[in-house]
């Protein structure tokens, strides 16, 4: 794939991730626990891992976090919060994908990614609040990560299959 094409495609994917995270912020969640999110932007992360690889996925995720905290406000704290989750989940998902795409489905990878995303955020929250009591949120975050990860995985599978047919990548 040529460098220009790659840049264009990644740019498109970043903007899509950004749009997804903005849409996500409009959807109220009945569980107001810090860190519980739909994680829609994970669709893009998974897609980038599949078509490009770890480094590109990390780039997309980082730029998305920077831009969304600029646009959405929240400053340094919220950036670190979402970045830490994003980092851990990108690492875990790439690792699982590389370990064997024949062993793990996109859905399985996505669930693992969502959960590590939430754990990463919780660690940062615990660090900044200097209080391990935030671990009280862990069960809720794990369950919600599981559910969200499943749906994100289903959507990602569809998207990845569809994109494979376009021969764009």
């Amino acid at each position: 794939m040529s460098g220009v094409k790659k840049i264009v495609l990644l740019g498109l994917l970043i903007s899509q991730a950004l749009v997804l995270s903005i849409i996500e912020s409009w959807i109220p969640i009945p569980m107001p626990v810090p860190g519980v999110k739909l994680g829609l932007a994970n669709i893009i992360t998974v897609t980038v891992i599949v078509f490009f690889g770890f480094r590109e996925a990390l780039t997309v995720m980082t730029i998305k976090c920077v831009l969304s905290s600029i646009f959405g406000g929240g400053g340094w704290m919220l950036f670190l919060f979402s970045f830490s989750g994003g980092l851990l989940s990108t690492v875990v998902m790439s690792g699982l994908y590389k370990a064997g795409r024949d062993k793990f489905s996109i859905i399985g990878i996505s669930i693992a990614g969502a959960i590590s995303h939430n754990i990463g955020q919780l660690l940062v929250a615990a660090f900044f609040m200097q209080d391990l009591a935030v671990a009280f949120f862990l069960p809720l975050l794990l369950v919600s990560g599981c559910i969200m990860g499943f749906f994100v995985g289903v959507i990602s599978s569809f998207l990845i299959n569809a994109l494979k047919n376009t021969k764009l990548y």
Binding site: L96, G100, D102, K103, F104, S105, I107, G108, I109, A112
Partner: peptide, 8 residues
Amino acid sequence: LKKGDLFI
């Protein structure tokens, strides 16, 4: 779903 998913 694949076999490894069970593990996850």
